[in-house]
Design a protein around this nucleic acid. Structure first.
Lengths: 178, 178
DNA sequence: TAAACATATTCAATTAATTGAATATTAGCT
DNA sequence: AGCTAATATTCAATTAATTGAATATGTTTA
């Protein structure tokens, strides 16, 4: 199961609280494995029970106290083992594509609006990726090994969104001309 | 929830049994919303209770009897309503990408092997899509409206796999040169 | 001063998905 | 006669994910 390992991966950088993790998820690993905050908190408890994380409660002034989680040696080993074991390509589960499949049932205009909506979302996501690219990876030739991998993950996102946008254009063209 | 609607969409073409549906899923809607046969049977029962499907038991010679499911008027309406209501872009949940994210933890060779494995899988999937394209959509200009939408779904798959393969090349190049 | 926002976490209910097994019929192979 | 494979369906256990609510503290804003 990947959520636990996504959390471990996110904690590699620096120890943090569930709340921070949730925030960190948006804008990094969360692009590739999203999870709700309830899921994250539940998983953190489970991982601590397993001994893959340790926590320490920190009292703050002006704020509720928080629990800082840190990855353990065991956690790192488990993460490594999981990365090393082969996996299959992720199955697709995309509402829009099953809608497209039966799209002839609804009026063309309605469908076009939906495609525009998705186009906008994919454009926005691509813009986010490109902003991260410029901000964090201005010189991709000279990256640490860890950053090189993060850069590759980002590039995957960019390829993905670019392909979606190309398809949106194509699909909208095909639909209006019918 | 999309599984029910994916099943309805698959039944639009022709009524069939759970077993046939399962087979039909591989090679059409199933590319965009995969489901196990247990899921499909459970869902068929649920959809029949809702009145979106009707079934009739067919005794066959030389084979166990089967239940043929057919979409009802209500089922079609529900499918239309679902297609018409807007949805967000599908979240990504991809093991490999969270592995890439923390890929620096494992030896380069191991990671390269995993990438080759995925490259092979995506190549294979692309080949399947292209075979479907040649077999069922040789002249995309002259398609019925229903087929035009199915063709667009297929094109999405082709874009998706092509993007993955481009990324695989890039990633493998970046990893060997480090 | 009340409302809204940000921090920080937990609990419970439900739905969906995965995994493994069981059952029944017939065909074809060794 | 026994084995495998294909057809055809069901049940049960578990894990994962979604949804909605509740609680607590402090800051900013209207």
């Amino acid at each position: 199961m990947a959520l636990s390992h996504a959390i471990l991966a996110a904690l590699l950088g620096a120890p943090c609280s569930g709340y921070d993790l949730q925030k960190r998820f948006e804008g990094s690993v969360g692009f590739f494995w999203q999870a709700s905050f309830q899921q994250i908190y539940r998983e953190l408890n489970k991982l601590e029970e397993l001994g893959w994380l340790t926590s320490s409660t920190v009292r703050q002034q002006n704020r509720p106290e928080k629990k800082i989680y840190q990855i353990t040696e065991m956690g790192q080993e488990s993460l490594k083992a999981w990365i090393a074991e082969p996996c299959d390509m992720a199955p697709i589960r995309d509402d829009l594509l099953v809608k497209v499949f039966a799209g002839s049932l609804v009026p063309t205009q309605a469908f076009l609006a939906e495609l525009e909506h998705h186009q906008a979302q994919h454009r926005q996501r691509l813009a986010i990726y490109q902003q991260i690219e410029q901000q964090f990876f201005p010189t991709p030739e000279s990256l640490s090994i860890a950053d090189k991998f993060r850069y590759l993950a980002l590039q995957n996102g960019i390829h993905y969104e670019t392909a979606w946008l190309a398809w949106c254009e194509e699909a909208m063209g095909a639909i209006v001309s019918s």
